[in-house]
Amino acid sequence: MTAPTTGNLRVNGASLHYEVRGEGPPLLLIPGGTGGASSFDDVADTLAADYTVVTYDPRGMSRSPLDDPEAEQRVAEHADDALRILDLLSPGERARVLGVSSGAIVSLHLLTAHPGRIERVVAHEPPVVEVLPDAADHRALIARVRETFHAQGTMPAMAVFAAGLKREGDTDEPKAEITLPPQAVARAERTMANLPYFVGRIVPSFMSYAPDLDRLRALSDRLVLAGGQDSRGELPYRPAAYLAERFGTELVHFPGGHIGLTTHPAEFAELLRKAFRG
Results as ranks from 00 to 15, higher is better:
Thr179Lys: 15
Val128Trp: 08
Arg84Pro: 00
Met1Ser: 03
Ser15Thr: 15
Ala163Gln: 14
Arg232Phe: 09
Asp214Pro: 01
Leu216Ser: 02
Tyr242Ile: 09
Ala188Trp: 09
Ala113Met: 10
Leu83Ile: 13
Gly164Phe: 05
Ala143Lys: 14
Phe276Trp: 10
Asp221Val: 04
Leu88Ile: 02
Val20His: 03
Arg94Asn: 10
Thr263Cys: 05
Gly7Met: 06
Ala269Gln: 10
Leu165Cys: 07
Ala49Pro: 00
Ala140Gln: 14
Gly103Lys: 08
Gly7Asn: 06
Glu130Thr: 15
Phe247Val: 14
Leu235Arg: 12
Ile142Ala: 08
Thr191Pro: 00
Glu130Val: 04
Ala159Asp: 14
Pro4Cys: 00
Met158Glu: 13
Leu16Arg: 04
Pro174Asn: 13
Lys175Ala: 14
Tyr197Asn: 08
Ile118Leu: 13
Ser107Tyr: 08
Arg94Gly: 03
Asp170Leu: 10
Gly36Cys: 05
Pro31Met: 08
Ala193Thr: 04
Asp57Met: 04
Pro126Val: 01
His138Phe: 12
Val11Gly: 11
Gly60Tyr: 01
Ala48Gly: 00
Asp87Phe: 10
Phe198Lys: 03
Ile30Cys: 11
Pro31Arg: 09
Ala275Val: 05
His258Ser: 09
Leu86Ser: 02
Glu77Arg: 14
Arg246Thr: 14
Ala49Val: 02
Glu168Ser: 13
Asp57Val: 03
Leu86Tyr: 01
Arg96Pro: 03
Ala159Asn: 13
Gly36Ala: 02
Arg96Asp: 12
Glu70Val: 04
Ala275Glu: 07
Ala143Pro: 01
Asp170Gly: 04
His253Ser: 13
His253Glu: 15
Arg120Thr: 11
Ala151Gln: 13
Phe40Asn: 10
Glu168Gly: 03
Met158Cys: 13
Leu83Gly: 10
Leu213Ala: 10
Lys274Trp: 08
Met207Glu: 08
Ala49Ser: 12
Gly248Cys: 12
Thr112Trp: 04
Ile85Phe: 07
Ser101Val: 08
Ala82Asn: 06
Ser90Leu: 04
Leu195Trp: 03
Phe206Ala: 08
Asp68Ala: 12
Arg222Cys: 05
Ala71Glu: 13
Ser62Gly: 06
Leu141Cys: 10
Leu9Thr: 05
His78Val: 15
Asp45Val: 05
His109Gln: 14
Gly32Leu: 11
Arg187Trp: 06
Glu177Met: 15
Arg215Asp: 09
Asp57Glu: 03
Val199Arg: 00
Asp134Ile: 11
Tyr18Ile: 13
Val224Trp: 11
Gly200Pro: 07
Thr171Gly: 15
Ala157Gln: 09
Ser107His: 10
Thr6Val: 14
Ser62Arg: 13
Asp214Thr: 12
Glu147Lys: 09
His264Cys: 04
Thr191Asp: 05
